[in-house]
Computed example of a mutant assay.
Amino acid sequence: MFSGYTINEKQVGPAHVLPGLVNTGFSTKLQAACDHHSQRLSKDCTLLLEGDPCQVVYCVLDGWLALSKTLEQGQTQIIDFALQGDIVDPTTADGETSSVTINGLTLGTVATLHRATWQTLISDCPDLRQWLHGKDAARRARHSERMLRLGKGTAEMRVAYALLELHIRVNMISGSALPEFHIPLTQQQIGDFIGLSSVHVCRTMRRMSRNGILAMSDHMDVRILNPQALSHMAGIDHATLKREIVPALPSQTRRTSAP
């Protein structure tokens, strides 16, 4: 089920850490399935390799995962980061192989659900389908905004957008509205996420720091000092981005759609 990875085999107890899913129509069933199939991951492990056989869906209960693709010459592009509460289905259209390599960047916990189990959950829980639709829409929005900047944006625009996106996602999990946040990434990993070298990322973030836009400490503890300037540099409105990439919970969806 996993390949080429290091894992802590100690069985973990009930996780109960899917953000916001309390007293929803499907939370009990989904949490029970995640608790039963949860595994602790070690830092820098590999869960799955691009092209490997894959018949599972991963539910991230804790920690950070990186989803990436690599060229034959070794150049790697990080396609996305999966954080707490994210669902990762890496299977290609053939239904048999993984489209990406999945690495655990931090200590964490994932639930590995066989596709048949996952399909049963979806069939039995209409609210789960609605929740997944929202998460898929948020992921598409993230990818399209970043793709625009990868293709047309400057280095500063790419770095600024990545920091804004990660800040919103981290705060969504923590329930915080504070300007400081931690991203457990190296500058090389940030570069692989936005198509820049680690040297270019370092220079760009130092320039932002000198200009009073952000402050950094302890290897990627980031504090946003001037959110308006960072949003302007990223070429996006912060409130609009948050609305587009933070999926509503099922209860919020029902309230919004009610007459």
Rank of each mutant, 00 (worst) to 15 (best):
T6N: 09
N8T: 11
K10T: 15
Q11F: 08
V17L: 07
V17Y: 02
L18Y: 01
T28Y: 11
A32M: 09
H36W: 03
H37S: 11
L41E: 10
D44G: 10
L49K: 04
L49G: 00
E50I: 02
P53R: 08
C54L: 09
V56F: 06
V60T: 12
L61E: 08
D62M: 00
L67K: 09
S68G: 09
S68V: 08
K69R: 15
T70I: 05
Q73K: 06
T76S: 12
D80W: 07
G95T: 10
E96R: 09
T97H: 15
V100W: 06
T101W: 02
N103I: 03
T106R: 05
T106V: 07
G108V: 10
G108D: 06
T112A: 14
T112S: 11
R115F: 08
W118T: 06
L121V: 14
C125V: 01
L128V: 06
Q130I: 15
W131E: 11
L132Q: 13
K135A: 14
K135D: 11
A138P: 09
A141L: 12
E145R: 08
L148E: 13
G151T: 12
K152A: 14
M157Q: 15
L163C: 03
L163Y: 04
L163W: 04
H167M: 13
R169Q: 10
N171E: 10
N171W: 08
S174F: 07
Q187L: 08
I190W: 03
I190C: 05
I194C: 13
G195R: 08
V201N: 00
R210K: 11
R210W: 07
G212Q: 02
M216W: 03
S217Y: 02
S217C: 00
M220F: 05
V222E: 03
V222F: 12
R223S: 07
P227V: 14
A229V: 15
A234P: 12
G235M: 04
H238R: 08
T240S: 00
T240K: 04
K242G: 01
K242Q: 10
E244S: 15
I245P: 04
V246H: 01
V246L: 09
P247A: 12
P250F: 00
R255E: 08
T256R: 15
T256Y: 09
S257A: 14
A258G: 04
